[in-house]
Design a protein around this nucleic acid. Structure first.
Lengths: 138, 138
DNA sequence: ATAGGTGCAAACAGTTTGCATGTAT
DNA sequence: ATACATGCAAACTGTTTGCACCTAT
């Protein structure tokens, strides 16, 4: 990461502006508005480099592509909307995780993902669900 | 899953005997002791079928291949050993997850993975770590 | 006899790497 | 000028699919 290039600036910009963790393809899509010729390879290479230098933190999710967010945030977890597939930060943590750790095991870290419906999708889902039920009954 | 075949019997056997969730390759390795000609394709197909008919439950992990365990267990979570990469059940759950859910979001499910060192690896790690420190200092 | 199952090889998706070209320094 | 960065295409890994052969029913 020795040079200042347009693509790197664009990628950093996108991640700084992001309200939530982004996947490589999301980063590509957003950053291409700034640098249209940007390739997915460069996104991967840059993101990996930014993770290595601790500017980014990977947000890994069960059975899915990792998302990336700015490093250095306070300990938190993530919420994944099942409708729009977006991932959001869920600030805070819970106590008493120790009771889950089997005897003799040593816990060092944990990852928690909450699945559900985000605000925007809850709103637009209401009418959609009615339609589905309607269609199913008909 | 209409027919009773040697490979399916072997796969089921392995999963019934397993003390912890297994990945497709782990299933293959173990089941090949019973049916040497077994192929990975069949493991995938069978596992997927068993998940469809709710005999198996997938255990999906951040950034890793899914493991599979018998369905119908009580709600629980998982512990992943960073030394041997095995996954273990972590019985129980924690309360108070709701506080993490952003306002307006609707939570439906959650997944929790605890990372650390399992009993067996904690034991064998002690001498190994000393070796590492020794080597590093030297 | 025949529908269903198996295994190989090929297809696939997501990610990484090799290499020739381009560009910040 | 030159080392570093980019983008394409090819390689790779884990998983799925097509197809000819096999086998439980």
């Amino acid at each position: 990461m020795a040079r200042r290039t347009a693509q790197r600036a664009a990628i950093r910009q996108v991640l700084e502006d992001a309200a939530r963790p982004l996947s490589p393809t999301e980063i590509l899509r957003d950053a291409q508005r700034l640098v249209p010729r940007l390739g997915l390879t460069t996104v991967y290479r840059t993101v990996n480099a930014l993770v290595d230098e601790r500017w980014l933190a990977p947000v890994e999710l069960p059975g899915e592509a990792a998302r990336y967010e700015l490093a250095g945030k306070a300990h938190h977890h993530h919420f994944r909307c099942r409708v729009c597939d977006s991932v959001f930060d869920a600030p805070g943590c819970v106590r008493g995780l120790d009771v889950l750790v089997p005897r003799g095991f040593v816990a060092e870290a944990h990852a928690l993902v909450i699945y559900g419906t985000c605000t925007a999708c809850s709103r637009s889902l209401q009418p959609a669900q009615e339609l589905v039920e309607h269609a199913t009954q008909a």
